[in-house]
Simulated assay, not measured.
Amino acid sequence: MAVHRRDVSAVAVVLALLWLVAPAIGTTPVDAAGRLRVAASIFPLYDIVRHVAGSAAEVVLVLPPGASPHTFEPTPATVRALAGASVIFVVGHGLDDWAARLARGAGVPDPVRVDRGIRLRRVYAGGGADPHYWLSAPNGKRIATTVAAELERRAPDRGAEIQRALAAYLARLDTADREIRRLLADLPNRRIATVHDAFGYFADAYGLEVAAAFEAFPGREPGPRFVVEFQRKIRASGVGMVFTEPQLSVAALRPIARDLGVTLGVLDPLGGLPGREGYVELLLWDARAVAAAARGVTP
């Protein structure tokens, strides 16, 4: 599945409106308390950054919780929120390029992609990388380490504080990783089916198999041939549930699931919603959902 291109017209309109908000966009990289002002494109990065930064930085989230980076339409308010940020942390690989463009328009320097040290899955047409690499605790640790290095570079006087916060957060991620592995041990069926192919890294990290994905492009209804192949894979896999996402419509999937005799559950790739108000909580929430579905119980 390839991540489809953003509709750049909406971004272009917002950037054209920057002239109207330019006086509000400052250039000072720190606030009155000596904190950096930084931004993150999506909630998982935002939560990682704020835990690693601690009191050394104010962190701005660009994509509102509940919205999808694949379908989000930015507004002038989105740009104003970036005012004065010294850097924006992004996933890259087509998922949040729109956020990087908005940031540049708001005077934020080149974005920092957080995939350093992460082995990317080359699964998309043309050899493109799967951008959902934050969806495993080991990759979360790599992201946190990249963020810490960038924050230290920009605020060397807060280096010791950032390193203490990083160490504490890495320990939390280690604990979460062990709990996820415990939750997903000895499942009767290690196959999952999803509305779109966002959980490959999660599956690879925890010994699962993504047997089928409904949408070839997030937020776009699949064509007839893709639906037929999806149905074939579901029947062959033995899964009893297809996981949707809170950020995407399930209108097209619901009647197909009914015909297949499978139920619809929820896996969340982004979080920031009740029950997964943090990145660690998000990973655990998804693991519990997979475990419950495999065992045929209500999470």
Rank of each mutant, 00 (worst) to 15 (best):
R6V: 13
R6D: 11
D7P: 02
V8W: 15
S9K: 13
S9C: 07
S9G: 12
V11G: 00
V11N: 00
V13A: 15
V14F: 00
A16W: 01
L18W: 05
L18Y: 12
W19D: 15
V21M: 07
G26L: 10
G26K: 02
D31Q: 12
G34D: 11
R37Q: 12
V38S: 08
A40Y: 03
L45G: 13
I48T: 13
I48H: 10
R50T: 11
R50Q: 12
H51N: 14
A53T: 09
A53D: 13
G54R: 01
S55W: 00
A56G: 14
A57S: 08
E58I: 04
L61M: 13
V62K: 03
L63T: 04
S68Y: 09
H70C: 10
T71N: 05
E73A: 14
T75R: 15
P76W: 00
P76G: 03
G84E: 00
A85G: 09
A85T: 15
G92D: 10
H93F: 15
L95S: 06
L95Y: 09
D96G: 07
D97E: 15
A99Y: 01
L102Q: 00
A103T: 11
G105P: 15
G105R: 06
P109E: 03
P109N: 03
P111H: 02
R113D: 06
D115N: 11
R116D: 12
R116T: 12
G117V: 02
R119I: 05
Y124F: 09
G128L: 13
G128I: 04
H132W: 08
H132S: 14
W134N: 05
L135I: 05
N139W: 08
N139M: 01
I143S: 04
A144Q: 08
T146W: 06
V147S: 07
A148F: 02
A148K: 03
A149E: 14
E150M: 03
E150R: 14
L151M: 06
E152H: 07
R154E: 09
D157K: 14
I162Y: 03
A165D: 13
L166K: 02
L173H: 01
D174K: 07
D177I: 00
E179G: 02
R181F: 05
L183N: 02
D186K: 11
R190I: 04
R191T: 07
I192P: 01
A193C: 12
T194C: 04
T194M: 02
H196I: 10
D197K: 11
D197G: 12
G200F: 11
F202I: 07
G207N: 09
G207L: 05
G207H: 06
G207V: 02
L208F: 08
L208N: 11
A212V: 07
A212G: 05
A213Y: 13
A213H: 15
F214N: 04
E215R: 09
E215N: 10
F217M: 11
P224K: 09
R225G: 05
R225C: 01
F226Q: 15
V228R: 15
F230P: 03
Q231W: 00
S237H: 03
G240Y: 01
G240P: 01
P246K: 09
S249P: 01
A251Q: 11
R254Y: 00
P255A: 03
A257N: 07
D259T: 12
T263R: 14
V266C: 08
L267N: 12
L267W: 07
G271M: 08
P274G: 01
G275C: 06
L283S: 04
L284D: 06
R288W: 01
A289M: 09
A292F: 06
V297D: 05
T298R: 12
P299S: 11
